[in-house]
Design a protein around this nucleic acid. Sequence first.
DNA 1: TTATTTAATACAAACGTTTGCACAAATACA
DNA 2: TGTATTTGTGCAAACGTTTGTATTAAATAA
Lengths: 337, 337
Amino acid sequence: MTKKVTIKDIARELNTNYSTVSRALNDSPKISDATKQNVLRQAKLMGYQPNSFAQKLKKGYSNTIGLIVPRINRVFFSNVIHGVETIAKQQGFNVIICQSNESVKDEEDNVKTLLSNNVAGIIMSISKETQTQDSFQEILNNKIPFVMFDRALNNLVSNQVVNDNFKGAYEVTAHLIKQGYQKIIHFSGPLYINIYQDRLEGYKKALEDYKIAFNPNFVIENTLTKDKGIAAVEQLLKQKIDFDAIFASGDYSALGAILCLRQHEILVPEQVGVAGFANEPFTELLDITSVEQFSTDMGKSAASLLLDKIQHKDTSDQHQNIEILPQLIIRKSTQKL
Amino acid sequence: MTKKVTIKDIARELNTNYSTVSRALNDSPKISDATKQNVLRQAKLMGYQPNSFAQKLKKGYSNTIGLIVPRINRVFFSNVIHGVETIAKQQGFNVIICQSNESVKDEEDNVKTLLSNNVAGIIMSISKETQTQDSFQEILNNKIPFVMFDRALNNLVSNQVVNDNFKGAYEVTAHLIKQGYQKIIHFSGPLYINIYQDRLEGYKKALEDYKIAFNPNFVIENTLTKDKGIAAVEQLLKQKIDFDAIFASGDYSALGAILCLRQHEILVPEQVGVAGFANEPFTELLDITSVEQFSTDMGKSAASLLLDKIQHKDTSDQHQNIEILPQLIIRKSTQKL
DNA sequence: TTATTTAATACAAACGTTTGCACAAATACA
DNA sequence: TGTATTTGTGCAAACGTTTGTATTAAATAA
């Protein structure tokens, strides 16, 4: 690595003071246009790159924000990342991305890493394991701007960007009912996480509105993966439970359900309708009804909100709660009619 | 944001000098165990967080590496990111991720951003547009460690981690031939990018080895998206070209081809066999033959290589070229037999 | 006992910026 | 012409660390 050029080097070359160079580079109104030109030319000539550490140290803040997601390589999250990146870059901010691998322990480490990197704010979606705010208590203590997206804790008030999961779930369920399905199983997730709770509520409300009795046994908790979806259907069949539809709180368990039903030569959608949630790319290819969450938009919203807080554009001390309207995408897997 | 605690604050509290505190925190052998204990306790008590900017300024280097990918939200790349993150975190490094959006312009901006953030090294896969090294010339000038993965420039010698694309393509083609397909179309990508060139070569070599004449008209360049795949098949059919298989250099155009063939009621694999490249998740679900690239491993390799260079574990000034062996995944779309 | 070594800590400079203040030169006003 | 104001630049402190050197006290050797 060749020796870095500093403003002092430029100043020396130009027979001027380095403070002048600094001001010129920062386009200060105190500096004459002539010197600005000069400095800029010389800086370019010498290949000057400002030392961001010195800048940040002096200024006391960084243009970096932190983003914690459970898994980077999940379509939903990588879309969110994409959205966050886009907005951040637009406003001159960098993003450090961490993944919690769905583990509280990793989550806590991530928080430490980000804080010790002096990020200006943090955006995060909690891991499936996370049941308390212990792992990110330090963020709250440090009082740096903080936004949660998608998954948040039910009992914690914070800046949030979430889907209107209640509505999404309500619409899926209502759609199933309108298609003539009556005995609808719900695959749920951990209920201490807001989104799964909300989806369950939406499901219940739709049943209620359409005068279908809610059967607690029809809710199968913590069934979000393909394998769990398969296992759940196996179980249902073995127990000879009479059902004609499945609304899964995630696409992967919906996929598992379909694969398992197909295995048992049960026709989808004729005998059993199946719907998921998240609109993963494969749902389009496999014609599975799902709910689009506009994940990129969610990332953009979260980033905008955080940056407003960081840049004090949003001076209200209140917590904001942004809801994104999801959209039901009807496909073959639920079209009995 | 509450006032940050510094080592000076700790020193004042302990009636000692801040240099002592610094050394104690860094576990210097010059400091007695008693004081170390003291300092550590006090630091914890006061909630001390080192200011990383000051540290980096003083030390002159950072523990951050940069990663430029064409798109964050592509499974292949998000897996690579995952791999890079994993290794980086293990070794105490952070990763700043940038996306070029397949644009040279953005790529150049990314490079600037990363350099001005004083990253310790850069890992990158070029955009589809990138035909010269202009956009990242600054990295080469700056002489900071640099590793390219997957997509690289054909005529540039650099540290690289790539798949053995030649081998992968050879195996796909050989497999098609063994299945009885004779007239194999190849959907290619931009040929100034190494990987597409290599895949073309692999395809050619297989044809040669199996004594099938190579027909230049059977190579359709720059056909990597679903839409381009559809368009290409439409074109082939319209021109009444006689073919019985398609080897696409990417899964999306393979998907497009299948959808279009299905539209025209041409049976896959009976009448036309179709294979892709990359083993995108949907290929498994749709039973499309493809080539697994071990993308997470690729990210891990790239990160390891870069970190070796950064930490001078690899002192050789030579450029390393790591090849990852891809694996042919045979599925229904090519199983005529 | 005194001289010498060792151990532990204190002092101060440095990293590369930004920025308040002082100052000189140039311009405006009386 | 003299004074007040503006404009542009220089000086120096500060941000929070790390680290070479100086200093002190204690421990050892002579």
